[in-house]
Amino acid sequence: MKNPIAGGAGRAAPVEVALPHSRASQRRTLTGLLENERFLALVLLTPTVLILGMFIAYPFGMGVWFALSSISVGNPGHFVGLKNFVKAWNDSIFRIAFWNTSVYTFWATIFKLVLGMWLALLLNRHFRGKRIVRASMLLPFIVPTVLSTFAWRWMFDPTFSVLNWTLYKTGFIVTKLPFLSNGDWALWCAIVVNTWRGMPFFAITLLAGLQTINTDLHEAASLDGANGWKRFWYVTWPLLKPVTVVVVVFSIIQTFSDFQLIYVLTGGGPANSTHLLATYAYQIGVAAGLLGEGAAISLCMLPVLFVVVWIQLRYLRRLEGA
């Protein structure tokens, strides 16, 4: 239909008198300006953009420059191209650190996801004392990592380890386990501590996701003859996927860039065998003062983080599209 039909044409009297544009001038005042959507958005976003620009974008650019220069403490340095990256690549400790970071991130994330999901499913049921159990399970996540890691370090102590004592007294071992004094053992210890610390976050977030799932679905599924495992696999898991993706990505970023846990637990030792990228960057950039090389090492985290976030953004966008 191309033409509008104004039926009862006589009634829609044409407006011919030019009416005054009231208060058009008021838009110039601040209150008037704030009524403008774009201006208001500008005002509201400025503080955030300034802070993030000043303390993220600017240092990030500076970090890139550092990585490409020979700067060190007390020496402004000059442009050296990719020399720092090449040096890192040829550095066996860097390679170990990169490998450690990947192993640490991969296994810790898997453990956190599996155990966190399991715990969430347990906590989603009704039992007495549920609230207190749920609250106490969050403790590892909220207590400062450095402080709780000290407790673990003490539990792993070469001489006074309570874990060794228990295993010895119960007859599982006859000599002490070298928790932190052997490189391979130490990395797995770090994975255990990271899992212990991060699992509650998975559990409580997945629990929030679980609680949005309608129980009718489970009843329908069990009427259809699905057992517990099948109900989880065909009903719960698909609905939890979006939440899971968000948590996993968040956790990968945190774990991949982790610093404090290793710093306290092993300090990168024994013999530089447990460094992560972040602790090694600290050792080179801060402890040794080679700012350029340190910046280059920490920049090596970026591609991995970028891929992870990109996958997440794509996944979430596809989800919104569907």
């Binding site: 239909m1 039909i5 039926g7 009634r11």
Partner: peptide, 15 residues
């Protein structure tokens, strides 16, 4: 109204 156009304006019984 339909598709953004006014189709007809009138008293109920007229419509």
């Amino acid at each position: 109204m339909k598709d953004g156009w006014i189709q007809q304006v009138g008293e109920p019984l007229e419509l």
